[in-house]
């Protein structure tokens, strides 16, 4: 079986996903990914006419079934404090996170 997702690609995916994995987990996941790709390859063999467009939602929306856009009227939310209360660290109503390494190289 070909290994489409190499160690290098896998590491990049893990970085994009903001994850870190131990070796066992990485091994299992990379193996499963390659197995799933086997299943996906079935798609490659399908030839599609140019007229076949994408379907983004199964059921098409018509003029009558499409909801209207929202009116621009303020609907104040009373739960702002409850939302804030879910955060792990809050100071002076700000949500606090660790530093982001400096972006300037001078």
């Amino acid at each position: 079986m070909t290994e489409k997702i190499t160690k290098e690609i896998f590491d990049h995916l893990v970085d994009l996903a903001a994850l870190e994995l131990d070796d066992d987990e990485a091994k299992y996941l990379r193996n499963e990914l390659n197995n799933q790709l086997q299943a996906i390859y079935e798609l490659e063999a399908i030839t599609l006419d140019d007229e076949i467009d994408v379907t983004s939602h199964g059921v098409p929306y018509t003029e009558s079934t499409r909801p209207e856009l929202r009116e621009d009227v303020i609907d104040p939310c009373k739960e702002a404090d409850e939302i804030l209360a879910q955060a792990a660290e809050v100071q002076d109503r700000y949500i606090v996170v660790p530093d982001i390494p400096s972006e300037e190289l001078g």
């Binding site: 929202r70 621009d72 009227v73 303020i74 609907d75 104040p76 939310c77 739960e79 702002a80 939302i83 804030l84 002076d92 109503r93 700000y94 949500i95």
Partner: peptide, 23 residues
């Protein structure tokens, strides 16, 4: 008046942090 995807007030100039927020 409101934000692009929710009914919160769009203009927060001089408002306290995290007051014009919703789920």
């Amino acid at each position: 008046q409101t934000k692009i995807f929710c009914g919160c007030k769009a203009d927060s100039w001089e408002d306290l942090p995290n007051t014009n927020i919703c789920p």
